[in-house]
């Protein structure tokens, strides 16, 4: 099936923020995919003789470790590159899981209305009333921190924006004639929701997806910084900031480097979202 969205891709390259954000995201994604090939060293290999080597632009920096080494002598650039894997994996997995939950609930609520809508809104209100960080802390404290736990908790907590956006868009679409026409052609309710209405919601969905992905990266970084996210010795960017906090006065670059990485990736994903919103809006012309 060809969707209208696919026909707009050539326009997308002419959109400045979409091109810039997309470029950075693509670069990080390539880095993450090819991490073992790109990284100059093993990110887990400790070398206590080479501890706290500063990056090359400082006086004692050397090219063997372009971004220096951490307190255990592990190569900082390699850890950064491997850390991109964790951030992107979190973004994709959480985006997918929360997207599935939120889209499913939103579609059902918007299409059926009535008591289904009331029930979904009730669940949504409850979800919004829950303090997300507290729940995450509690779950991690009980189950223990791991990548899987972080993905599951964030996935099950962050579907609200998907549900709200999809619900209102589905309500609008459900009243269009093509939905009635589809039932007149014998489509079942499930088919109408998934094959007729959902393809019309691709634009808003992509935008929410980028917002949620950026959000998930930030939360993972925050959790890892608190020591409740991805456990060491994994090279998570948040964990790198955490491990660097003891050295903040004498080696501030240790915090800046992963901090800038988090900032850049989140900014890039948000730029992509903004750009998509423009490109997918019908009134946008390059």
């Amino acid at each position: 099936m060809t969707a209208i969205a696919e026909r707009r891709w050539p326009d997308a390259f002419r959109h400045a923020s979409l091109a810039a954000g997309g470029g950075v995201v693509l670069l990080v994604a390539l880095m993450a995919l090819l991490a073992p090939l790109v990284a100059p060293h093993d990110p887990f290999l400790q070398n206590l003789d080479h501890r706290l080597i500063p990056p090359v632009w400082e006086a004692e920096g050397r090219w063997a470790h372009p971004l220096g080494t951490d307190a255990l002598g592990r190569d900082y650039l390699s850890r950064l590159i491997h850390g991109a894997r964790i951030s992107l994996l979190i973004a994709l997995a959480v985006g997918l899981l929360s997207g599935l939950i939120g889209t499913g609930l939103g579609l059902a609520a918007g299409y059926y209305g009535g008591w289904v809508d009331t029930a979904v809104l009730f669940v949504l209100t409850n979800r919004l009333a829950m303090p997300g960080v507290l729940i995450t802390l509690a779950v991690v404290a009980i189950v223990g921190g791991s990548l899987t736990v972080v993905i599951l908790v964030l996935g099950f907590l962050n579907w609200d924006r998907f549900a709200v956006v999809v619900r209102s868009a589905a309500q609008r679409e459900a009243n269009r004639d093509y939905v009635l026409a589809a039932s007149a052609h014998g489509s079942s309710a499930l088919r109408i929701m998934l094959a007729e209405i959902l393809p019309n919601l691709v634009g808003p969905l992509l935008v929410v997806l980028t917002v949620e992905m950026a959000h998930a990266i930030l939360i993972e970084a925050a959790l890892s910084f608190l020591g409740l996210g991805v456990p060491p010795p994994n090279p998570s960017w948040g964990l790198m900031v955490n491990e660097a906090k003891d050295h903040i006065f004498f080696h501030p670059w240790m915090i800046f480097i992963p901090g800038i990485a988090i900032f850049t990736l989140v900014l890039a994903i948000n730029l992509v979202g903004d750009g998509l919103r423009d490109v997918l809006a019908p009134e946008w012309r390059p």
């Binding site: 004639d177 026409a181 014998g186 489509s187 019309n200």
Partner: peptide
């Protein structure tokens, strides 16, 4: 089961009765 196979229907607004994305 009859809808669309043995009984078919067409509507007033051809502008909106076709799904715009397919």
């Amino acid at each position: 089961r009859l809808r669309g196979s043995r009984i078919a229907m067409i509507f007033q607004e051809p502008m909106t009765a076709l799904n715009p994305v397919f």
